[in-house]
Design a protein around this nucleic acid. Structure first.
Lengths: 205, 205
DNA sequence: TGACATACATACCAACTGGTCTGTATCTTA
DNA sequence: TAAGATACAGACCAGTTGGTATGTATGTCA
């Protein structure tokens, strides 16, 4: 059951990526230390710089290979074919707010938003990648609202794009509130308010 | 018309604070450089460390003496005695979204939120100061909504605290969206959506 | 006017930063 | 099996970081 060389190589690369993700999540990108990543991953600088051209490229890879898939998994796939986005969004909100409170992650915020706020204005590569992710996020929600309208689950007067933009922005804000206040109560309160907002988008009887 | 010593002293202190605010706003707190601040302020390290015990204390002072008053001025005072928070909030949103788009500040985000996202989880002094500011922010909105309900301008069924929490969170998200996307359109779109949300809080006829 | 404090200026420092360079063991492939 | 490529290891480096120690000019006040 010994692994092949390619498997071992991929394993160290993955170790580095995971350690980098954790370090950047905890100490931000600029504040995060390469030495710390090396140590946490249990490898050496030689390995790190063999796999990634520099800190910048490592950051890009974390976005592409770790954060992107998480976003997909958490928020895009569940809404991808939804005919009733209000119900499904409320479900996802409740679920992941609870999850992040239980794990304690809520006071570290959203990994994507963290990088976005820190690096988007400073680095073009970050900006492009992050913008792309947020764009697909908004588009997924907007498409779901469009289907919801067609299915009679969402009021016709709502603008899918505007609402999608606001809902995504609200998520940034809710997770940001959790991070800066460290208050579970505030975070759930904000979550409840969003759910109420969403309910108000249903067709009036 | 020569100034007194106290005036000159206060002037250099203020120069340092302004330069620090600009530097932290542009490059974040951890990313911001003391040397850069010294240079931008046109003073020396001796002066800086004479007035502030360290980078940390300088950051605290920026929060207390620069960012706090800006928050007060922009968002708290205008709502302090409002009997019609929906109208007044919509006004403020439209006004300052436009202002930050015109000045180009919109792609640097909100100074308070920037520091909050970066430093709240890392430093207790930052956390406390920031939390206090956000708390007064939410409380001001909540009180305005309470008065709005009494004045018949806001539907009775809304929870002032929940809505206030969400509105503040939305602001974090809207300015965050502007910063990470650099898109004026997205920012105004999100602003419009918030205004619609607020309108839906009016009493139904 | 003399003593002392305040308000800086400047040279300096240890610690750490991201990054490079060279050496080498291991695997692949002709 | 020889030759080359791959995948690291680890010492090393220049630059920058926040911070300090010392010196000095200028103000204040008894």
């Amino acid at each position: 059951m010994s692994q092949t060389q390619t498997q071992r190589t991929e394993a160290t690369r993955h170790k580095i990526l995971m350690a980098a993700f954790a370090e950047f999540y905890k100490n931000s990108f600029q504040g995060g230390s390469i030495n710390q990543i090396v140590e946490a991953a249990g490898i050496t600088k030689g390995a790190l710089f063999h796999h990634f051209a520099g800190k910048q490229e490592l950051g890009y890879a974390v976005l592409d290979e770790i954060i992107g898939p998480i976003l997909q998994d958490r928020w895009l796939t569940p809404l991808a074919n939804s005919q009733d986005p209000i119900t499904d969004l409320k479900l996802a909100f409740r679920r992941y707010i609870k999850a992040d409170i239980d794990t304690g992650h809520f006071n570290q915020g959203c990994p994507l938003n963290n990088l976005a706020q820190e690096m988007s204005p400073l680095d073009e590569g970050f900006h492009q990648r992050i913008d792309k992710l947020y764009d697909s996020w908004r588009k997924t929600y907007a498409a779901a609202f469009t289907r919801g309208i067609k299915a009679g689950k969402v009021r016709k007067s709502v603008s899918p794009r505007s609402v999608a933009t606001l809902v995504v922005a609200s998520q940034m804000g809710i997770w940001g509130t959790g991070k800066s206040s460290r208050s579970k109560q505030l975070m759930t309160q904000a979550g409840d308010a969003v759910c109420e907002y969403l309910d108000n988008l249903k067709p009036r009887p």
